[in-house]
Structures are given as structure tokens and as C-alpha cells.
Computed example of a mutant assay.
Amino acid sequence: MTINLMDIVGRISYKCDILFRVIDIKEENGQKIAVLYGEDFRLIADAPYEDLLVIDQTKRMQLTREFRSLEEQSYRLFQQDIDLLQQKQEYATTDGYTKKVNYFQMPGRVLHIDGDPTYLKKCLSLYERIGIPVTGIHCNEKEMPQKIGQLLEYYRPDILVITGHDAYSKSKGSITDINAYRHSKYFVQTVTEARKKIPNLDHLVIFAGACQSHFESLIHAGANFASSPTRVNIHALDPVYIVAKISFTPFMERINVWDVLRNTLTGEKGLGGVETRGILRTGMPYTAENQE
């Protein structure tokens, strides 16, 4: 069976448990090796050419339906949280519904930097559906540390997302060795550069990491939230749910970490963080212009 770039494949040795896109095919020591990007998980992997199986349309549709069902469930739970936050805010703003107040809200602005243009597109669609003001930038993981300073100065976001693909390789070192990870060191460098610009964790909220990323290094570098505490794979959309919760929480409230993680698709095994202040600000009076 011939396998081409951008084919959707599974790894036979892993019983085709994850769908991948073939993004490169190379020769190493006389063996053909494919470089794979996860379709729904932020995972990058190398695999022998002969270990790959092209996934037929029927199987792809079956797996896709399962993931979309999980995504919709997560979205519904998240939307319930947002509705509750908005009701609480309306109650406080109107003094227990006793006053008619013409107010507006300003959720936190997000700058999302992603190493995968396909995932970035999926995330931007979800931001739009939720109602989060966002700018999305596709950037290779290795180039992020050099570009982050200029991007922060230009866009001045409230929330920064630094993500893409990552993977831990046992053959390259122990789980504590950041050099054993595909892109973790670049994510850490990017967070470090961002914190040189804006040191305060409440003035710029940062999510950083991808599948199996070195969680501890990212948190110590200054990320508010990061992946992956137990080095598991995270879903492509998980960063959106985390920052959206922060974006819609009033700035006078602090967010319990579990409240942020509980409606993600991966949960606390793949995501973690520190207590963080919300971003949402309420103002008045409402006009059409201040909602643009």
C-alpha cells in the first residue's frame, strides 16, 4: 500500500488508536520513516513506513463521530458554566435585578500562537462560537521564542496561548530531561521571553504546551496553565476551554484550578495550573460602538 503526504493513517503497532496526518516521509539509516501529526490530539510522532495503515473513510467517520460527540458534550458543559457566570454578573450589576442597568462586558482578548495551522483553524472556530475576541498566528514551534516579544507588543493580549505539537521520547532521556521532548524547550523559552515583557501572572495569563509536554518546566517558566502533568495526550481544543473560562470570569474573582479543568476533554491528567484572576470587565452605559 502506498502512503502519501497528508494521508490519514494509524499505527499498526498501536492498533490504530489515534488518527494521524502524514506530514513528511524521510530516509533514516536505509529505512523509510514517516513524521505524523495527530488529527485530534496535539501529538507529533515518528513511525516506520511499514507500521502505517491508511484509514478508510468508514473507520475515519466512526472515530470522528466519537470525538465530535465528546467535543459537543464538553462545549455544552462549558456553556452552562458561562451562562451561570453571566447570570451572577447580571445579578450583581443590577443589584439583585432591582435596577435596570444598561451595561456592556469586555471579555479577555486572546493571542493564540499555534504550530499547526489545521488545529489553529479549529480553535479559531470554537473561539468564535463561544464569543472570545482572538487573534490567531501560525508559527513553527522553534521560531516562537524569537517572535513572541514583537507579537506581544503589537497585539497586547490579556491571554496568551502557546501551543502546537510535542512528544516525549523515552529513548532520548528520562521524563525529567527537557531535551527528551520534541518541542517543550521551545515552549519554555517562549514563556520565559513573554514573562520578560509582562512578569505579572494576572496581567498576562499564559497557557503553554501540547501533548506530553514538560508541565513542571512550563509552570516554573511562568505559565498560569500548562500540559501535561502525567505526560498524556491533550485534545486539540483543550487550550480554548481553559482560556475561555478565564476570559469570561470577572477580574475581581480568582479561579479555582479544578473549575477550569473539569470541562476540558483531557482533565487534570493532561492539564494543570495555578490559581489565576479572571479577565472580564463590566462597564456602562451600553452603546453599539463599545460592542464592536
Rank of each mutant, 00 (worst) to 15 (best):
T118M: 07
K122C: 09
C123G: 13
C123F: 05
L126S: 10
R129C: 01
R129T: 01
I130V: 06
I132V: 15
I132R: 02
P133S: 08
P133I: 03
P133N: 07
P133A: 08
I137Q: 01
H138T: 01
C139A: 14
C139D: 05
E141A: 11
K142D: 00
E143R: 04
E143T: 09
E143P: 03
Q146Y: 00
Q146S: 00
K147T: 11
K147Q: 15
K147C: 07
K147M: 14
G149D: 09
Q150R: 13
Q150D: 15
E153Y: 04
E153Q: 07
Y154D: 03
Y154P: 00
P157L: 05
D158G: 11
I159Q: 01
I159L: 04
V161D: 06
G164D: 07
H165W: 04
S169V: 02
S171P: 02
S171L: 06
K172N: 11
G173P: 01
G173M: 02
S174K: 11
I175D: 08
I175L: 13
D177A: 12
D177W: 05
I178Q: 09
I178G: 07
N179P: 05
Y181P: 05
R182A: 15
S184F: 13
S184Q: 15
S184M: 15
K185E: 08
K185T: 08
K185M: 14
V188M: 14
V188W: 13
Q189T: 03
T192G: 09
A194W: 02
R195K: 13
R195A: 12
P199Q: 02
P199R: 03
P199V: 01
N200K: 09
D202G: 03
D202W: 02
D202I: 05
L204M: 10
L204V: 04
I206Q: 06
I206D: 09
I206E: 06
F207T: 00
F207Q: 00
A208E: 02
A210H: 00
Q212T: 05
Q212V: 05
S213H: 04
L218T: 06
A221I: 00
G222P: 13
A223T: 02
N224E: 04
F225I: 06
F225K: 06
A226R: 08
A226M: 11
S227G: 06
S227C: 10
S228W: 04
S228K: 02
P229H: 11
P229F: 10
T230V: 14
T230C: 10
T230S: 12
T230H: 12
H235K: 14
A236E: 12
L237W: 06
P239I: 13
P239V: 12
V243F: 14
V243G: 07
A244F: 15
A244V: 15
A244K: 14
S247R: 01
F248P: 09
F248D: 11
T249R: 12
P250S: 12
P250N: 11
F251R: 15
